[in-house]
Amino acid sequence: MASKSPTILATSGGYKPGARTRLEFNKLVHYAVDLSGVTGRAPRIAHLGTASGDQRWFNSEISEAGNVAGFRLTHLNLFSMPNVGNIEEYLLGQDVVWVNGGSVVNLLAVWRAHELDAIFRRVWQAGVVLAGVSAGSICWFRGGTTDSFGPELRAVSNGLALLPYDNGVHYDSEAARRPLVHRLVAAGTLGETHCTDDGVGLLYRGTQLVEAVTETPGKAAYRVTLAASDGSTAEVVEERLDPTEL
Rank of each mutant, 00 (worst) to 15 (best):
L76E: 11
E235K: 12
A51E: 06
V96S: 05
L78V: 02
T207V: 09
P164Y: 01
G201M: 09
H182S: 09
G132M: 01
G168Y: 06
F58T: 09
L23E: 13
T214Q: 03
I8F: 01
A220C: 06
I138N: 14
H30P: 06
A69W: 09
R22S: 15
Q125S: 13
G199T: 07
L73Q: 14
L241C: 04
R183Q: 15
L76Y: 12
G14T: 09
L76T: 08
G144F: 12
P217K: 06
N167Q: 13
H182R: 15
A161R: 13
A161E: 14
Q125I: 00
A51S: 13
A19F: 05
G101H: 00
Y204F: 15
L76D: 10
P164K: 05
L130S: 02
L107Q: 15
V68Q: 06
T216R: 10
Y90A: 01
T7W: 10
V185M: 09
S137T: 06
T207Y: 00
V68E: 08
L9G: 08
F79W: 04
P43W: 09
G18H: 07
G13S: 01
S232F: 14
S232Y: 08
V38H: 11
A186L: 11
T193A: 12
G53H: 03
D242H: 08
L108F: 03
A212M: 07
L48H: 07
P243F: 10
F149A: 13
Y31T: 13
R122V: 03
K27P: 01
R121Q: 15
N106M: 11
S5P: 00
L78D: 04
E239W: 00
V133E: 08
V104K: 11
T207R: 14
V133M: 03
A113E: 15
L28P: 13
R56K: 12
T11P: 00
E89N: 10
T7P: 04
Y90S: 09
Y15G: 08
L226Y: 02
E61M: 12
P151Q: 12
Q208G: 00
E115C: 07
E61N: 06
L108K: 02
D242N: 12
S80F: 02
I8A: 10
N158C: 02
S5D: 00
L73D: 05
D147W: 12
V38S: 06
S134W: 07
I138E: 06
T146K: 03
T39A: 14
E192P: 11
A51W: 09
I119C: 10
S36N: 13
E64N: 12
L107P: 08
Y204H: 13
M1N: 08
A113V: 05
T39F: 07
W140E: 04
E174L: 14
V105S: 10
G85S: 12
G191P: 04
I8S: 07
V224Y: 01
W124Y: 11
A212D: 01
S148D: 05
F25L: 13
N77E: 15
P82S: 04
A234N: 09
L163A: 02
L160Q: 06
T196S: 07
V97I: 15
A234W: 03
P151N: 04
R122H: 02
A227G: 01
H114K: 01
T225E: 11
Y165P: 02
H194M: 15
T7R: 10
V210T: 15
L116A: 03
S229F: 04
R44W: 05
L73G: 11
G218E: 04
A161Q: 14
A19H: 11
W98F: 14
M81D: 08
